[in-house]
Simulated scan of single mutants.
Amino acid sequence: MDALRSLTSGAVKRFLLIVEGDWRPYISTAVQHGVRAILWRASFSASAFLHTIHAVGNSGVVLPPSLQGMLVDDFLRVQNEVLAPRDLTTHGLASREVDVLRLVAEGFDLKEIAQKLAYSERTIKNILYQVIKRHGLRNRAHAVSFAIRVGII
């Protein structure tokens, strides 16, 4: 991991690791430092290597199933222990922001949204403004489109 940290400082890079069967890092840390593929040395073959290089070159990820499970476990731990207690989603939106965007998408105006959520109209405007500003969006329609694309609504 130290070698990966030094290689990835300041630049976006993608790495393929060939590892021994007893290698058990925090897979999310490896991914954070640019690892996009892992091959077990014991099952290494030229065809697997070429397939993996091609996949990583096309922005893909190749991980053994056991490591995929570890990565999903890490993701769920962050979701449940870090984001949810702070009322955030994986896309950095608070649940009230998601609620507002959902209601905008359903065609409600600011006054109706404020009544449904028991906020003032000014609060609804501020919520929308913060989402638009934080994510570099242009307007409410763009914010709704963003929410749909990332699967929030």
Rank of each mutant, 00 (worst) to 15 (best):
residue 10 G to M: 04
residue 10 G to H: 06
residue 12 V to N: 14
residue 15 F to P: 07
residue 15 F to E: 04
residue 16 L to E: 08
residue 19 V to E: 13
residue 20 E to T: 14
residue 20 E to V: 12
residue 20 E to W: 14
residue 22 D to T: 13
residue 22 D to W: 15
residue 22 D to R: 15
residue 23 W to H: 08
residue 28 S to N: 08
residue 29 T to N: 09
residue 34 G to L: 05
residue 34 G to H: 04
residue 35 V to T: 06
residue 36 R to I: 09
residue 38 I to A: 11
residue 38 I to W: 10
residue 39 L to S: 05
residue 40 W to L: 15
residue 40 W to E: 11
residue 41 R to T: 07
residue 43 S to W: 09
residue 43 S to V: 02
residue 44 F to Q: 02
residue 44 F to S: 02
residue 48 A to I: 07
residue 54 H to A: 15
residue 55 A to G: 13
residue 56 V to T: 11
residue 57 G to T: 03
residue 61 V to L: 07
residue 64 P to I: 04
residue 64 P to G: 08
residue 65 P to N: 01
residue 65 P to M: 02
residue 67 L to G: 10
residue 67 L to S: 12
residue 67 L to F: 15
residue 72 V to T: 11
residue 72 V to G: 05
residue 74 D to I: 04
residue 76 L to R: 13
residue 77 R to S: 12
residue 80 N to L: 14
residue 80 N to R: 13
residue 80 N to T: 10
residue 81 E to W: 05
residue 83 L to I: 07
residue 85 P to L: 04
residue 85 P to M: 06
residue 86 R to K: 04
residue 86 R to G: 13
residue 88 L to N: 08
residue 89 T to C: 06
residue 90 T to S: 09
residue 93 L to Q: 06
residue 93 L to E: 00
residue 93 L to G: 10
residue 94 A to M: 13
residue 94 A to N: 10
residue 97 E to C: 03
residue 98 V to E: 03
residue 99 D to P: 01
residue 99 D to F: 10
residue 99 D to M: 11
residue 105 A to G: 15
residue 106 E to H: 03
residue 107 G to D: 02
residue 110 L to Y: 12
residue 110 L to H: 12
residue 115 Q to W: 14
residue 118 A to S: 13
residue 118 A to K: 07
residue 121 E to W: 08
residue 124 I to R: 00
residue 126 N to D: 15
residue 128 L to Y: 00
residue 128 L to R: 02
residue 129 Y to V: 05
residue 130 Q to K: 12
residue 132 I to C: 08
residue 136 G to L: 00
residue 136 G to S: 01
residue 139 N to T: 00
residue 144 V to T: 05
residue 145 S to K: 13
residue 146 F to G: 02
residue 148 I to M: 07
residue 148 I to S: 10
